[in-house]
Nucleic acid binder design. Structure first.
Lengths: 205, 205
DNA sequence: CACTATAGCGAACGAACGTTCGGACGCTAT
DNA sequence: ATAGCGTCCGAACGTTCGTTCGCTATAGTG
């Protein structure tokens, strides 16, 4: 506990709070994340923790943003150099499966939990989660469109339908891994994706 | 509120508590269900509400059981008279989609929310939810096995893989309905299921 | 070397949490 | 008629919730 801090130290404190917040929220849920619990985990006082954020809702929103950064970095960036279309889509599927299986957060994917938790709770948190979900959905759909336009997927393939089914496979993977501890979940997800795409899908390390 | 009750009245009170508990938990989550909130909703005192159950955890467990009864009655029983194998599997898929789209609970499917909420929280609640999930999984797998044995699905079809992908489609349907309010979600789920089964799937009313 | 800004602490707040206890009331059976 | 039982209420408990306030101690600025 050496409070020899400066303005740069404050930014590091903020990062530590958000990192821990994402981890806790992936297990306990975003609503179950409490100031006292988080402060105790980090050896801080409740007031010191709430200071940089002002309110719990503001903290929640920034936790969602921090989780989105991690998702983007872990799933998208490793495959961003692949050529757009089918190659990139297949690569992002493998990256996505690897991210879920790793897992990146102690409670599995933060957004799977947050989407289910806030799908029926109107408010800024739901709006933000939905915004990131939409962005991801559009990203996948655009790659699928490109793949169809390139002739790498059968003509007449509906990109929206494809994304719907790919998303379903990742949700099934998440449930099989987290709830059922199914050791065959990863190859099953890859197999389903490969059948949809017509090319092999390999879970990224 | 005429407390001219008897032992039969007590059972009715218990049912009302559980019915309301399932509804609230499908929106707020099983952990977010609070004694005070539930008592206020029903015009009861907290002590009177907790009486028949003894503790919150016991109440939660019985809420899970009540939700399982509803799921079974709404999804399984309407198609239980269909011949086992592919016919019953296709019918149950349509029934399942109808149940999710209706929806049976104000917050969508109780078990989709509970599975995600408790997948990383060890304890009796997780164990019970997992037990019902396993039972449902086995039921579907048995029908898929029968369909393969009957020659109604291609030889070499892996029943476990089929159930994995069907489950994924229902999870994608739930997310598309609850979070994204996608009006095309139901036909997409039916189309994906029909492709997996080789026969049409119609969402039940 | 003072001066100001600020990061974080400690204490306190009102509200809500789950839980416990004694008593009031209405039913059933003697 | 009355005794007994079960249902539910009202009040209170200790704890934790999110939030606010004043304070100390340090870092950077002139």
């Amino acid at each position: 506990m050496s409070p020899r801090s400066s303005l740069a130290e404050a930014a590091r404190t903020r990062s530590a709070i958000l990192a821990r917040g994402v981890a806790v929220a992936s297990v306990e849920g975003l609503a179950g994340l409490t100031i006292g619990r988080l402060a105790a985990d980090l050896g801080m006082s409740k007031s010191g923790l709430l200071g940089p954020f002002g309110s719990k809702e503001s903290l929640q929103l920034q936790v969602v943003e921090a989780a989105a950064d991690i998702f983007w970095r872990e799933v998208w960036e490793p495959v961003a150099d692949r050529p757009p279309g089918l190659a990139r889509l297949a690569a992002v599927c493998g990256s996505w499966v690897g991210y879920l299986a790793r897992p990146a957060f102690p409670g599995g994917c933060f957004f799977v939990a947050a989407a289910s938790e806030y799908d029926d709770r109107p408010g800024p948190v739901r709006d933000l989660v939905l915004g990131y979900a939409d962005r991801w959905h559009r990203e996948l759909r655009d790659q699928a469109r490109r793949a169809v336009a390139d002739g790498d997927l059968p003509a007449g393939t509906d990109p929206e339908q494809l994304v719907f089914e790919l998303t379903g496979l990742t949700l099934a993977l998440h449930q099989a891994l987290r709830l059922r501890h199914d050791p065959h979940a990863v190859p099953r997800a890859c197999q389903g994706m490969a059948r949809l795409l017509g090319v092999p899908v390999h879970a990224a390390a």
